[in-house]
Write a protein that binds this DNA or RNA. Structure first.
Length: 120
RNA sequence: UCAGAUGGCCGGGUGACCGCGGGCUUCGCAAGAGGUUCGAGGAAAGUCCGGGCUCCACGGAGAAACGGUGCCGGUUAAUGGCCGGCGGGGGCGACCCCAGGGACAGCGCCACAGAAAUCAAACCGCCGAAUUCCCCAACACUUCGGUGAAACGGGAAUGGCAAGGUUGAAAUGGUGCGGUAAGAGCGCACCGCGCGACUGGCAACAGAAGCGGCACGGCAAGCCCCACCGGGAGCAAGACCAAAUAGGGACGGCAGGUUGCGUUUUCCGCGUAGCCGUCCGGGUCGGUCGCGAGAGGUGUGGGGCAACUCACAUCCCAGAGGAAUGGUCACCCCUUGUUGCGUCUUUUGGCGCAAGAAGGACAGAACCCGGCUUACAGGCCAUCUGAUGCU
RNA sequence: CGGAGCGUAGCGCAGCCUGGUAGCGCAUUUGCCUGGGGGGCAAAGGGUCGCAGGUUCAAAUCCUGUCGCUCCGA
């Protein structure tokens, strides 16, 4: 699972499709420079989430959820960014998994609609 | 037993499965895979001080300015930290708190009230001894109209006083006796205050013979004075490797015609401006190092009241870079409230047992170290103080 | 990592340096002018001066600590 590391890559993802679902926010954009068959993911938590302990914990839980779900659901050639929200650290893990799944499905539908609109 | 003071310590435990970061190691051309081992804190936090380290500046040294510190001694790499002592304040006490030099170096401020806020003075008041005047008037003189006038008493002016009153956070010693016209350290006694030989102590400071009739308000966390300390910046320090693109330099080749510029002007000549290739250095993205064996931890012994220090033995104990500890589960521990049963009780309710439920403090290394400050559920240990009860 | 500033009424600010009375504008409430609205006039209410200690007779103001926010430089 490749990881996003540069600030510019996070900013590009923020301009793509965004979906808020429960305790998380998901951002997706196309990444033409990465090799065929791969995708990348990044995690971020702002100061609104809490102090350093709360931010790190939120990112760890997002990483655990992503390692379970993204190999099954992610599309190749895209960057995914999971943004922690205030409830990310306290949400039950089953609920967190459900949130990420729902956000992925909804964002993929948004991606398809955008592509169709560009086609016509 | 209750209440409290001080110092120190811990800060969930055990196990199972799936995952994460570093070191070492085996396999592999490599990517990577396997094994093994280590993997956050007492505050890692705030960034309030002090140092190491690195670069910059500077002839040595010092001064000015600016900033900081501020009883004395010790400790330390160093400090504004810490330890011990002194002084002041608080507490019955154990003990706690204090930026705690200087107000005859100078400037400034002290609202309101009050007579007056430091230069002295006098609002109410007290006095009438001294000088002068007025009233009263014994008495004397008399032209019987008046005139002069002592004492006592009264009033006033020049004055004397600061005892008493009023204000205020703060008012220039307090009490008593003498003294006086009234008073006043004016005099005396005691207390207070100031200076202080001398004694003890490294010192801060403490004690104190004697002297002084008392003259000395507060604020320096107002400016300031004095003493001491400080060169500046910070790991994004700094060092190294180094892409694409653009630009620079050197060499070689092509063209050597025209044009511009320079050589003061003209002719000639020279240089420069073009394209291509090779090489070079600077430098950006990026990467590597800096980067963890240290003013280190633990133990024993010695020195010191202590902070601390010396010797020996022993241990290796995070090293990331969108940043390593997460997910699921079982048992135990603790806390909270709920329900049921038992028991005590007049009741509210207390205690015990059981059930199932919720929750488990503050908080995450980012170059390192010594302190300080702040946050923190709950718990443990030691020493000491006060009260009460029993022996 | 280094530096600077702010916090005062519901909102925006002054007062702080040089310590003694917390004030201004908008907003709020009430009354009046108007048939009503808008607008105007008059009056009133509203303050832990971010928090905790300290200095002082006295602190929004001075000092120390602390919390929150904003900005600047590398």
């Amino acid at each position: 699972m490749e990881r996003l590391r540069k600030r510019a890559e996070f900013l590009r993802a923020a301009k793509g499709v965004r979906r808020v679902e429960g305790a998380i926010t998901l951002e997706i954009c196309k990444a033409p420079e990465i090799p065929e068959g791969l995708w990348r993911v990044g995690f971020t938590a702002s100061r609104k989430v809490g102090n350093a302990v709360a931010r790190n914990r939120a990112k760890r839980r997002l990483r655990a959820a992503a390692s379970q779900l993204l190999p099954l659901l992610a599309r190749e050639g895209h960057d995914y960014v999971l943004v922690a929200r205030a409830s990310t650290g306290t949400r039950a893990f089953d609920g967190l998994l459900a949130d990420v799944t729902a956000a992925l499905n909804a964002a993929h539908r948004g991606l398809d609609r955008k592509k169709k609109g560009e086609g016509t």
